[in-house]
Design a protein around this nucleic acid. Sequence first.
DNA 1: TTGCACCTTCCCACCACGGGAAGGTCAAGC
DNA 2: GCTTGACCTTCCCGTGGTGGGAAGGTGCAA
Lengths: 141, 141
Amino acid sequence: MNIGEAAKRSGVAAKTIRYYESVGLIPSAGRTAAGYRVYDRRDVETLRFVHRARSLGFPVKDVASLLALWNDRHRASADVRALAEGHIHAIDAKVAELQSIRRTLATLVERCHGDDRPDCPILEGLADPSTGGDCCGGGTA
Amino acid sequence: MNIGEAAKRSGVAAKTIRYYESVGLIPSAGRTAAGYRVYDRRDVETLRFVHRARSLGFPVKDVASLLALWNDRHRASADVRALAEGHIHAIDAKVAELQSIRRTLATLVERCHGDDRPDCPILEGLADPSTGGDCCGGGTA
DNA sequence: TTGCACCTTCCCACCACGGGAAGGTCAAGC
DNA sequence: GCTTGACCTTCCCGTGGTGGGAAGGTGCAA
């Protein structure tokens, strides 16, 4: 099948498939005499795997590792698990950072009456955080 | 003062200050006869404001709006508050997405024994999500 | 005058694509 | 056989927000 069909079946945009090939995430596809890329069902399976890993937020480099493990019959599941756990930790760190920011913002917003007067604790907090509640003070970020 | 000193005092890297100037976030700095950028205390205040807004995750475009409001004596605090609330909503969406992903990953990791055997529910879940718990099924992403 | 720290502009790299241009290919319909 | 339109190809630019580094000019002190 052509790249468009592979894209439809895998959920990965044709542009993105070409990108994945260019960065070596997936092997180079075969070509017709006219230069069109050719894919089979196995390729689509691989693309689907990549698509799901990406939608779980794994960086492309990690997806490459996951693909390699997937294709390795002698893999140790501990390696896969370590990758996934690392990703979970990264997510936890990101969530903690976002929630810290959210708390600061919510505090500022609460104090702002939000009418047509210029007086605004949000701007004051940005101009001088000591007046606006601590921000990122003990932050993990 | 030179850009290096302004960077030190504001917490914004010299490179980043030049970038902010190039995209119009901050006005063009004055120059010495030799072409060096010159900053005063007010400029440093502005840079600090920008630095704090950025560290709260506001995109540069929003920081531009915040700066404009900050410099506008006739602003309505409602406009500032709306910006901040919009940012909070964006953060909430991001957090929800990350937590959804986290749940899926945690489920997969739990099921993986993580030893030297190749059997691995994480890879199986990526290859075929119907066997690995739902992922992003009703997802907001 | 030498040396070093600082400044300037410029381009490249990151990450993971998306848009779009310029041009070739294929299959269907007339 | 020719047109039409959908598909494919490569290539380059843009995103956001910097960081790194090259090549070259400045400023100040010894």
